[in-house]
Design a binder for these strands. Sequence first.
DNA 1: CGCTTGCTTGGAGTGCACTCCAAGGTTCTA
DNA 2: TAGAACCTTGGAGTGCACTCCAAGCAAGCG
Lengths: 155, 155
Amino acid sequence: MTVMETTGTRTDTCAGPTQQQNRRPDGDDHYTISEVVAFTGLTAHTLRWYERIGLMPHIDRSHTGQRRYTNRDLDWLDLVGKLRLTGMPVADMVRYAELVREGDHTYGERFELLQTTREDVLARIDELRGTLAVLDRKISFYADAGRALASERSR
Amino acid sequence: MTVMETTGTRTDTCAGPTQQQNRRPDGDDHYTISEVVAFTGLTAHTLRWYERIGLMPHIDRSHTGQRRYTNRDLDWLDLVGKLRLTGMPVADMVRYAELVREGDHTYGERFELLQTTREDVLARIDELRGTLAVLDRKISFYADAGRALASERSR
DNA sequence: CGCTTGCTTGGAGTGCACTCCAAGGTTCTA
DNA sequence: TAGAACCTTGGAGTGCACTCCAAGCAAGCG
């Protein structure tokens, strides 16, 4: 049995609200770099850079050497996008990509990495909630001050 | 009437779960840079840098030119810390600091800035929740795969 | 008094995540 | 079949937020 990160047929399914329409059916899923730019919002520079640093697998090439991305590559980029949103350093994502490439025996390590990331995200959400509370207090302070200034002007 | 950001006596009050004990009473609140380092977790380098770029007001000096921070400075650093957590660029925080220094007539702009930031934080929390969902799906996928591998081994 | 520890300054350096460039080959449209 | 638009590469450059350095002054202690 093989633990795959992402496959042509199912990908730990239901990819969420991501822009996944416009995709070609698996089998003739060959996208140019500019199509992937349109899908992901990343720049072509960044996509090439991701490949260079090992955050992407080596992408298939056309007979003339141009990149041809597959649906699987797009799925991977979706995940990377999500992880990036968490603030995970690129180096850690590269590490994860390496684990995937290395095969099944890295399963445990990958699992742990995901769980650590999950904890980080929860902590981050909590931090943001704390900040939100401060912001709300400050905003209502300003609203009060605004009313005071207004009534002062009307006096 | 003056809209103050932070005062010696009240600061739009109840500063939250921040480490505010160990503070000296207002009036002999004079902290060295290393004390502020201990309070905030920032480095002395960073504190000096904040002052240089205008993210802090000019800090009082001792007769020999050493920085002496006040409770008010600590309050400001608390806010800066919170804003930093939201991912607000330092340049924007500097802008806010300038508005505060410029006085009452910047009230409206400050209010807007805070509200924009609030919206950003809400959006960020939502993003993180989306990521959390992806992570949870992936984690349970790995958990299932783990069970499958285990049962395979036991066969 | 000497020593350690802490503080000062301007300016240079670091690490991250891109971002861009030049020079040239490829693919599409009229 | 010409020209525009797009793609390739390695390597250099950018912007942000620190982070560190060297040289020197200051304060507290035995």
